[in-house]
Design a protein around this nucleic acid. Structure first.
Lengths: 243, 243
DNA sequence: ATCTCTTGGATTGTTGACAATCTCTGGTTC
DNA sequence: GAACCAGAGATTGTCAACAATCCAAGAGAT
């Protein structure tokens, strides 16, 4: 499932994939300046393809570029994430409502099977929430596909989901609410199966806004904790927490 | 207001602007293959910057690219336009609701002034609906700004509105419903001024879905008309219509 | 000591040439 | 006559060198 890094046709596309992955996983830090020469050397390609890749990443909002001053990895602060979740709520709510009208019965069955698999995984390995996390993308992606709206699919898959995965990697140590999420997924699929688009939309919106509230709260708590010993990310003073 | 073509810092950005303009105005036809060498020569730049520009346009969904086979201008068929309007309905509806909560009183007043100006223009030059058309973008853009959601603003301004302008240029000879549109704009602003986000969203959604119904109908009529004499766009056989 | 100007180094932007790939044409074979 | 297979031409992909721009360190003046 984890895409093999170098599967793209052109070097620029390959670089684009690898850079995307590196940014999402945090290998490239938020706000970090990206040096073209270094990156090109690292990937064993020329600066031409690399620059094209960066131009693509810019379109995906994963980097910001200032002419003659280079590109930097975006920084996902709380406000940006709030914006992202708000947009998701609108788009995925719509996707859900449309999917309830347009999905075939087979697709609905596939969705249900997907949830069964997720349930197994969650029960089997209780703490490994990243499995659920990737599965979560599958779920939401399947619903987007069900909307049959190609523009919506592209928007969600190409842009928002990348940023969302980036958020997840940042906040993965927080918020392990896989079971309630799975339950909400079930209810959403039930509404879709009943062809009740209105309800499906409401449930999806609630699912997403709930997820945001949870994450937002956790972040706030962590920020407060960090305010005590600001430099405790570095293992220098080793003051521990709440020292 | 029409951005001066060559105002960007780098050649790639300049090319990006000019290409965008050329595609929107139809100077570059839908589905047309874009030859890198020709375009580069035409803009007086090398192929490097041009390719970067094309990579950007790809992100804006104005062109599609197939590795080793070149890039083509997107083709806006009816289905794509329907998808676009559906996404707009969701996003602009949300923008409207949020703007009703977050816009300052000054911004609301600015919106009202904007509509006054539009009214003048519409009354003064009755047929020149393109003025209204550009003004329409202003109106929707101002509301997007009012949402204070930067991601939403980028999404609408950078991607959807470019495609939308492309639609408009294609269908500008159809659907001159500037007065009802202006009236709907007024009602939307009234709802925002009353801080009634729910109503503002409903009105905006109705405004957009109504616009799409109108355009869709007109397109259908035109398609039927074209089915009589298919090749009447070329002045070759000069058979006129309904021959 | 602080501010400004200059200069050197590093980085981005751009180009033209080269390599890889595709496509279209023409010929050959069944 | 149709299908298939070269091969030339055109087009995209890539690279390495060059030009333009920015940034930081250091000298000099107030």
């Amino acid at each position: 499932m984890l895409a093999p890094y170098t599967a793209e046709g052109t070097l620029a596309d390959m670089a684009s994939s690898r850079l995307t992955q590196a940014i999402i996983t945090g290998e490239l830090i938020q706000g970090q300046k990206l040096n073209e020469t270094d990156l090109a050397e690292r990937y064993g390609i020329g600066r031409g393809p690399l620059r094209e890749a960066l131009r693509q990443l810019e379109g995906m909002r994963l980097v910001r570029r200032i002419p003659h001053a280079g590109v930097r990895v975006v920084t996902l602060n709380r406000e940006t994430m709030a914006d992202l979740y708000a947009v998701r709520e609108a788009l995925e709510g719509m996707a859900c409502r449309t999917a309830a009208m347009r999905m075939t019965d087979e697709e609905v069955a596939t969705l249900q099977n997907l949830l069964d698999k997720h349930a197994e995984q969650v029960e089997a390995s209780d703490g490994k929430e990243y499995v659920q996390s990737e599965g979560d993308f599958d779920f939401h992606y399947q619903i987007a596909l069900g909307s049959r709206n190609q523009m919506l699919i592209d928007l969600l898959a190409d842009e928002l989901y990348q940023l969302l995965r980036m958020c997840r990697y940042r906040t993965s140590r927080l918020a392990k609410r896989t079971r309630p999420a799975l339950q909400q997924h079930r209810h959403i699929v039930e509404a879709i199966a009943a062809r009740d688009g209105e309800l499906a939309e409401i449930l999806m919106r609630r699912h997403i806004s709930g997820a945001w509230l949870s994450i937002s709260n956790m972040m706030e708590m962590e920020e407060e904790a960090n305010d005590y010993g600001k430099t405790n990310t570095r293992p220098k003073t080793a003051s521990g927490c709440a020292g």
